[in-house]
């Protein structure tokens, strides 16, 4: 484990835990789960003090359709080691604080999960859409019906019908 991750672990407050595993190359990966979203900013501040850098943020759809909780994973680079802080949020109407005051580069990451998932970010400096075209519905990745069955596999199907129609005669 490198000094940065160690330094962060030294700053842990009661209720925060980190599980670490080190691979054959000596690279450590730490996992930290936060039950209360309010802990995110203090944890991020501790990461920053330890010298960490925000790598990326992953939001995802809960696997279970009836789940009441959803998660966002914040990945920090600690001088080569990686720390992942997973925050639990309510499934519906999830809101989270923006990390931009601490890590400038959270900007795009947060805009991205705002447009793809049903999550709001408080105090985001520029909450416009980032990549997804205005014609696409909001929170597209939170839909439970696989999108392909709705729109496009129809186009794939007609495609194959055409190919087969063209070749069927030859058979």
């Amino acid at each position: 484990m490198k000094d940065q991750l160690g330094s962060f672990i030294g700053r842990l407050q009661p209720g925060w835990t980190v599980e670490c595993s080190t691979d054959g190359y000596g690279v450590t990966v730490g996992w930290c789960v936060l039950e209360t979203a309010g802990d995110l900013l203090p944890v991020a501040a501790a990461v920053k003090q330890a010298g960490g850098r925000l790598s990326t943020i992953t939001a995802y759809q809960p696997k279970d359709a009836n789940a009441t909780v959803r998660e966002i994973a914040y990945h920090f680079d600690m001088d080569g080691d990686t720390l992942t802080v997973t925050v639990r949020l309510p499934r519906l109407g999830a809101e989270i604080d923006s990390l931009t005051p601490l890590f400038r580069n959270a900007d795009w990451n947060e805009r991205e999960f705002m447009e793809l998932y049903d999550i709001q970010v408080r105090n985001h400096p520029d909450p416009r859409r980032l990549f997804v075209d205005a014609t696409v519905d909001p929170a597209i990745l939170d839909r439970l019906i696989p999108f392909s069955t709705m729109v496009n596999s129809a186009s794939t199907k007609t495609l194959w019908e055409r190919i087969m129609a063209k070749t069927g005669g030859e058979q």
């Binding site: 794939t156 495609l159 194959w160 190919i163 087969m164 070749t167 058979q171």
Partner: peptide, 21 residues
């Protein structure tokens, strides 16, 4: 790319690959 399809025909199992995908 979903380029390979199999279907059962009277002659047997038919393999079709479309180069354009």
């Amino acid at each position: 790319g979903d380029a390979i399809h199999f279907d059962e025909t009277d002659e047997g199992l038919r393999f079709t690959l479309w180069h354009n995908t």
